[in-house]
Amino acid sequence: MSDNLLDINIRHSLQTANGILPMEVSFSLSKGNILALTGPSGAGKTTLLRQIAGLVNPQSGKISLDQQLWLDTSQDIQIPTRKRNIGFVFQDYALFPHMTVKENLLFALETKGDEKVVDELLDAMGLTQLHGRKPHQLSGGQQQRVALARALVRKPDLLLLDEPFAALDHSMRYQLQNLLLKFHRLYHFTVIIVTHDIGEIFRLADRVMIMNHGKVTQLGSPAEVYTSETDNADDLTLSGEVLSCQKLHGHLLVSALIENKVRQLTLPLDMEPQMLPGNNFTLPYSLDPNRIRLVNNR
């Protein structure tokens, strides 16, 4: 018996700013893996997540989870979203504004589900004291914790995350990554996360898949994908906090906290205004040593 939990083979016409693009995606993902999905804007990443969730129907193909068919256009099989045991978190959080924090979680709980899991998640996410507040009374980081807790309340087999931490500062992003890893170890669910942050990819993912123009261009471990000579990493970013910055031999030597590790970056001199100690930064990442170079990791 295959250990692949998720099997996808779909075709679709993707609407882009440059017209209609043929989308063809085929891959398998083993149970318990965390897959980072990355690539340029318009590549089809969000559309793929929505197709897996059943929110968008591909024009043809199959999607199965643990050998249960969720979609098979040849047999006219289409399992609705509510019957797919998934959790998903998008950038806009999509919390119900008229419900409290706890009510948002209870609404997501299965009928006759054990309400104890709601209190457990509120405690684990540090939300117990906020359970009676409504979304507009919460910070962005607090709203994101609620969204993540709501996605986990049904103990999903598959968790879909669409750049869930992109709008958060480095400290909050790292905190929520820790929570994701904690619950992943506890519940052993499979994860697909759309991200452009290279540190996040290496910290979270077992596998990484690059999409471009509606197709999978690379699939492998982060080390395999990002040491490939054919890889194009122009759309990736590196995020962190500046610890110190000094001029040295015609460039900047920056000490930065990136994914809770102190790293040394060499950067162009014209970036000095962005590299003041204490600043949070997001930079384009490249393997080209003439642009941004990781020269030390300790």
Rank of each mutant, 00 (worst) to 15 (best):
I20R: 07
I79N: 03
G42L: 11
K62N: 10
F27G: 06
Q91W: 09
G42S: 09
V89F: 08
Q91E: 14
R11L: 05
K83S: 09
M99Q: 12
R11F: 04
M23D: 01
I52F: 07
T47C: 08
L21H: 04
K45Y: 00
L14E: 11
I10M: 13
I79G: 01
T81L: 11
A108F: 00
L21M: 10
I77S: 11
L105M: 12
L29M: 14
A43M: 04
P40Y: 06
V56G: 02
K102V: 01
I77M: 13
A53W: 03
T81G: 04
M23S: 03
V25T: 03
F90V: 11
K102D: 01
G44C: 10
L35V: 13
I52L: 11
T81A: 15
F88P: 00
A53T: 02
I10R: 12
G54R: 06
T100K: 12
E24H: 14
A94I: 01
S60K: 13
L106G: 03
Q15R: 13
N104L: 07
Q15D: 12
A53F: 02
I63F: 06
L95R: 08
W70T: 07
K83F: 14
P80S: 11
S28D: 13
I79K: 15
S64W: 04
S41C: 13
Q78N: 15
Q78Y: 15
G44Y: 00
N33V: 00
V56N: 09
S13Q: 14
V56S: 14
H98E: 09
L109D: 03
G19R: 12
K31T: 04
G44R: 08
W70A: 10
A17W: 01
S26H: 09
R82F: 13
Q59D: 11
R11T: 13
W70C: 10
T46H: 06
V25I: 15
M99G: 04
I20G: 01
G32I: 06
L14Y: 04
A108M: 02
S28W: 01
I20Q: 12
Q75W: 00
G87W: 00
S74D: 12
K31S: 14
I86G: 02
N85T: 05
L95D: 12
A43T: 00
R11H: 13
G61K: 12
S41F: 01
L29T: 02
P58V: 04
M23I: 02
L55R: 04
G32F: 13
S64G: 05
L71Y: 09
S60Y: 03
N85V: 02
L14S: 06
N104P: 01
F88V: 00
S60A: 14
Q91C: 06
I63K: 07
F96P: 02
T47E: 09
V101C: 13
R84Q: 09
S74H: 08
T100H: 03
T100G: 09
K62R: 15
P58H: 10
Q75G: 02
A94D: 03
